[in-house]
Amino acid sequence: MPDLDLVVEESIPGERPPAAHRIAIALKRQLGEAVSLFHLHDAFGTAELEVNGILLDLATARREHYPEPGSHPEVHFGSLEADLSRRDLSVNAMAMVLDPEDTSSARLLDPFDGRGDLARRQLRFLHSGSLRDDPTRILRAARYGARLGLDLGEDSLNQVHTALAEWPWRSGSLPGLGTRLRSELELLLGRESWERALMLLQQWNALGLLDPGLQHDRHWRRRLHRARCLAARLERPPWPQDEWLLLALLARLDDPLSLARRLQLAGRCQRLLADLLQLRAWVNQASTELEWRPATLSQSLEHKRSSPEAVTLLLAAYSGSEFPPRLRRGLLRWLLRWRTLRAEPSADDLIAAGERPGPELGVRLRQLRAERLDQQRW
């Protein structure tokens, strides 16, 4: 069981902390060191704990109202039935009601026939305006579809197409929407069967939610697998899977930085994409060079301060037919070996042999390293 979701009704609304917070605090006090993660979310009256390795999400039952499509909802605490009615999909709008007097028994609360949709292997949005209120529900549908082997029903698929055709999210007028999109993508790429989820989004013509170029991209699967395999061979601190796969997904876009800014990706992600764009422009120019040697290629990359991660994304994103195979092979060899080679003899060896520290020693070391690089097989 990866996680457990519990909802509690607020019996006495007022100035005191919401019910989920009070329960979370009591659990932490009672269980002590068994609670390894503890976080309270004030905006929605929720709490997140990890108890003996199990993630526990505690929520105060609430109802929501969207002042305008795509905006952050206004939250008010309410009944369990109201909480279920604000959910995304019928399969996520079921609850087992626990009896505090008899904890061995429970009854199923299923006001939207989620159990029937599970039997029919279909995903169904709860309301006709579900995606108008919050288009990130498309990504959540893909997450559930990948996890449970479900697909959108006909009416819900039509709602996706209508929402995608009508929604002006690319105008940038709702920055909070970009943040929610990023959060959903991180969950999709970090926890779910991400390959199946992305396939569903493309099947629903919904990758255009991020960028039209992604919807028409037929090579994202190979790119993401290449990026994972190459990154595993780098002797560098690994990136979180969700960040790295998202960067690989964006790597072929004409303007990945615009989407990265709209999604409010972390600064290091945006810097890496900027590095990738510079490297991509350099490769287009360098592909006309016929006299590349290991030393000149390495010096050129290092003079540009190209990061190994940017070269990894470039190699994952572009096949050998898109720039000269010899140049691609050289980039791969630099990534996996050449960049780590040092001059022989080393600076300490040269100083021990009588050479003085200073600029001339640096020139000598660069010359020795270049000679060693040019002895490498291309």
Results as ranks from 00 to 15, higher is better:
1 M>K: 14
3 D>G: 13
4 L>A: 06
8 V>G: 10
10 E>L: 08
12 I>M: 11
14 G>N: 04
19 A>D: 01
24 A>I: 06
32 G>E: 11
39 H>D: 07
44 F>C: 06
44 F>S: 11
49 L>F: 07
54 I>C: 12
57 D>A: 10
59 A>D: 02
60 T>D: 07
64 E>V: 08
65 H>D: 12
82 A>N: 06
86 R>C: 10
95 A>Q: 09
96 M>N: 07
98 L>S: 02
101 E>G: 13
107 R>K: 04
110 D>H: 13
111 P>A: 02
113 D>A: 12
116 G>K: 14
128 S>R: 15
139 L>E: 04
140 R>N: 05
144 Y>C: 07
148 L>H: 14
157 L>E: 11
161 H>A: 07
167 W>K: 10
176 G>M: 02
177 L>M: 09
179 T>C: 09
180 R>M: 08
184 E>Q: 15
195 E>A: 09
205 N>P: 00
223 R>D: 13
225 H>Y: 09
228 R>P: 02
236 R>C: 02
245 L>I: 06
246 L>H: 01
257 L>T: 04
258 S>H: 09
260 A>C: 04
261 R>I: 00
271 R>C: 02
274 A>D: 08
274 A>S: 12
274 A>T: 07
277 L>Y: 01
279 L>G: 03
283 V>C: 12
285 Q>T: 11
293 R>Q: 13
304 K>W: 15
321 S>D: 15
328 R>I: 03
330 G>N: 01
330 G>T: 01
334 W>S: 06
336 L>E: 15
348 D>V: 11
361 L>Y: 13
363 V>T: 11
366 R>F: 10
